[in-house]
């Protein structure tokens, strides 16, 4: 009994300690912003590997998510004779929820895991210690550009995903299901608000980008410097990012849309 309580206490303390380390790490990375802005090439390279290389999966899945949404929405709406509102349904679901959330989940799988594995391997092969020996702060040199690359890339990816989804639904709706293209767009424009829907979706994706980047970079930086530790940290990045994104999404939705 005592042993069980002890283990529970120990794991609680371990979680709290990780949270504390993560917060301190985040603050130290924030202090590295100035240095990062003086060397924009580092940030550029990370935006390339984090954002541009994720573009393909975002484009393809955005198109297919929109097509599926168009198909499913049509079958539901046609029962009520409201199939002309398909554009509204698709645009609202994509701008408010699916765009930011699905992009963040895909991002965690494609880019977050790579960031963790990269930094973890740097730690395991003692490259980070080597940098410290040369008086280069790895938190500023390695972590800050990666975190901010995620923060910048995710909103852009989410916007591209949303747009591709709407185009996918439009293609399915007009070419396959015979919806009038004019009313698809005009009803959408009448019902979708820029501030309430598009801008709130953008704010969501910025916060998801921050969360995804922070979790991925911290997990890599904090991992056990062994092959097993790196693999566990990579898994943890994907799991924790997905859970945090979904939980955060609920809180943000409750705050934004009343």
């Amino acid at each position: 009994m005592t042993a069980v309580l002890q283990r529970m206490g120990a794991s609680t303390l371990a979680v709290l300690a990780t949270l504390g380390r993560a917060t301190l790490f985040f603050l130290r990375v924030l202090l590295g912003v100035g240095e990062m802005l003086r060397r924009p090439g580092l940030l550029l390279r990370e935006i390339y590997s984090v954002g541009v290389l994720t573009l393909v999966i975002i484009l393809v899945s955005g198109l297919f998510v929109g097509m599926v949404l168009g198909l499913q929405g049509y079958y539901t709406l046609v029962d009520f004779g409201a199939e002309q509102s398909l554009g509204v349904l698709v645009a609202l679901s994509l701008t408010r929820e699916l765009g930011p959330v699905v992009t963040a989940l895909l991002f965690a799988g494609r880019a977050g895991s790579a960031l963790t594995a990269e930094i973890g391997l740097m730690k395991a092969t003692e490259q980070l210690s080597g940098m410290e020996m040369m008086a280069v702060d790895p938190e500023r040199r390695i972590c800050a550009p990666r975190l901010f690359a995620a923060l910048i890339s995710l909103p852009l990816l989410a916007m591209i995903f949303t747009l591709l989804g709407i185009i996918g639904a439009y293609l399915v709706g007009t070419a396959m299901l015979g919806i009038d293209g004019g009313s698809f767009w005009s009803q959408m424009q009448a019902q979708v608000s820029f501030v309430d829907d598009v801008l709130n979706g953008l704010i969501k994706s910025v916060l998801f980008g921050l969360a995804a980047g922070w979790i991925a970079v911290f997990n890599g930086y904090d991992c056990l410097p062994t092959s097993h530790g790196v693999s566990r940290a990579t898994t943890r990045t994907v799991v924790v990012t997905s859970l945090v994104v979904l939980g955060l999404d609920f809180v943000l939705t409750a705050l934004m849309f009343d």
């Binding site: 701008t95 852009l156 990816l157 916007m159 747009l163 424009q189 820029f194 598009v198 953008l202």
Partner: peptide, 13 residues
């Protein structure tokens, strides 16, 4: 990305 945001602003909303 910015163009997508622009299209969402002008064409969708």
């Amino acid at each position: 990305g910015l163009a997508a945001l622009f299209v969402l602003a002008m064409q969708v909303s």
